[in-house]
Every structure is written in structure tokens, then in C-alpha cells.
């Protein structure tokens, strides 16, 4: 946890299929995310953004390249699914486009379950879950089921869940796609606050250019190639000014 980098990828390559059906979804992608840094990842559909998140999130192993999370080299060869799963629950938080809450758990239980999975006693995990929900402004909806929450509230609960294990890294895939612009911006600002307050690295895949000023760093991806987005960064800087 002392490593200043939340994430470092090097030469990350993902190839699907082989021979004439081979598709290179990710080409030699390298990225460094500091603790507390909020990174936006832009790019058209099919550019490889989600593949990048799946590789970094230890869900889909890369064909080549390394992934280092919180100073720990994770993807440098074959690892057991159990190891990867344990590392996910201890170090990574996920937020996705759709509200990905477990439908049979209330808001607080959706957050609490992550704490329990990393071995916290039930009461401690619940207290922590309540604190996070309060901090994210949905504490009063803690005992509501996901279907009783609005889209924005659901995303806030998802963010709370992503924070419940005090992760080194939060990966968010188009978290505002289902929200209107106001609520979308609120969620993006939430990520920035969370990253700065908790020292968590955050990578957000987004199409929403209206909130780019929220991000510290912006990357673009096209045809599997990852590069810093100069034009977008300039736009963001201008928006901030």
C-alpha cells in the first residue's frame, strides 16, 4: 500500500482467436495511475476500452504484458482463478454502466457483503457500509432494495460498494451512461472526491465529454492502441478554466 502507483501496466496485449480469425483487441497498452489520480479513458465503441478494464481488473488475463496493482505484480504469467479473485476482492473496486447491484440485497447489504468477503466481522462490515452510504449521500436509503432506488442512487451505492474494501484501484466502465447529464456529472465528481479523499486510483471509461474537466489525466484508445489524449486534455483544461 506504500507504493505511490495505484496501477502500472506495461505492454498489455490481448489477442482473441488465432490464425485468420485473430483479433488484436489491445496493443502494447501501458498506463500509470498514481494514488488519488482520476483517469478518463475515451474512445469509440470497439476500441478496446472494456478489454483493457477486464485485463486490468484481473477478469480476463492479457495475452502479453504485466499488470501491477498497488505495487504488486499481478499478471506476469498464469495465476489461479482463486488468487485473482482474492486479489480482486481485496484491492479492486468495480463500477459499471448498468447498476450492478445484487437484486436480493438491500443497499447497505450490497456494500456490507464486500466487507464480509474480505473477512471483516459482520457488524464491522455493516458499520463501514453505513458510513460509506452516508458519505455518498444515500444513507437514508440504506435499507431500500435496489429496485426502490433511482438510477443515481443506485450508482452511488455501487460506488460505495467499490470503496468498501478500501481498494487501491477503482475501475468504472461508462458509469454515467444511464444517467442524465446533471446526475452523470455528480457521479464523475464523486469519483474525483473519492480518489482524492481515499488515495484511490480511478480509471473511468466514458463517452461523456461534458465532464472531462473532472479528470486529472485523459487517455484515448483506438484500435487497441492507448495514448494520452492531448486534444481532449486541452479541452478539459479549458473547461476547468
Amino acid at each position: 500500500m506504500d507504493d505511490p502507483l495505484a496501477l502500472e501496466t506495461s505492454g498489455l496485449t490481448k489477442v482473441y482467436g488465432s490464425g485468420h480469425t485473430e483479433v488484436v483487441a489491445l496493443r502494447d497498452a501501458s498506463m500509470r495511475v498514481r494514488r488519488g489520480e482520476v483517469v478518463a479513458l475515451l474512445g469509440p465503441s470497439g476500441a478496446g476500452k472494456s478489454t483493457f478494464l477486464l485485463c486490468v481488473g484481473l477478469i480476463n488475463p492479457p495475452t502479453r504484458g504485466t499488470v501491477t496493482i498497488g505495487g504488486k505484480l499481478m499478471q506476469d504469467g498464469p495465476r489461479s482463478l482463486g488468487d485473482l479473485r482474492r486479489f480482486r476482492r481485496e484491492r479492486i473496486g468495480f463500477v459499471f454502466q448498468k447498476s450492478n447491484l445484487i437484486p436480493f440485497l438491500s443497499a447497505i447489504e450490497n456494500v456490507q457483503v464486500v466487507g464480509e468477503l474480505i473477512g471483516r466481522p459482520s457488524s464491522v462490515a455493516r458499520r463501514r457500509a453505513k458510513e460509506l452510504l452516508d458519505a455518498l449521500g444515500v444513507g437514508r436509503r440504506a435499507f431500500n432494495m435496489p429496485t426502490q432506488l433511482s438510477g443515481g442512487e443506485q450508482q452511488r451505492v455501487t460506488v460505495a460498494r467499490a470503496l468498501a474494501n478500501q481498494p487501491s484501484l477503482i475501475l468504472a466502465d461508462e458509469p454515467t451512461a444511464a444517467l442524465d447529464s446533471v446526475r452523470g456529472r455528480q457521479v464523475m465528481e464523486l469519483f474525483r472526491d473519492v480518489a482524492h479523499r481515499h488515495g484511490t486510483g480511478v480509471i473511468v471509461v466514458t463517452h461523456d465529454h461534458r465532464a472531462l474537466d473532472v479528470f486529472d489525466t485523459i487517455y484515448e484508445m483506438e484500435d487497441g492502441l492507448l495514448k494520452p489524449a492531448a486534444s481532449a486534455a486541452a479541452k478539459a483544461t479549458a473547461a476547468r478554466a
Binding site: G57, G82, R85, R86, I92, F94, I102, V113, L117
Partner: peptide, 14 residues
């Protein structure tokens, strides 16, 4: 939900 539990790292026995 099971895929989600796996995603957030729930062990097989859970």
C-alpha cells in the same frame, strides 16, 4: 448476481 459476486471476488465456496 452470481457473476457479480465472482466479479467482486466472492470465493467459490460462498
Amino acid at each position: 448476481p452470481i457473476a457479480l459476486l465472482k466479479l467482486i471476488g466472492a470465493p467459490t465456496h460462498v
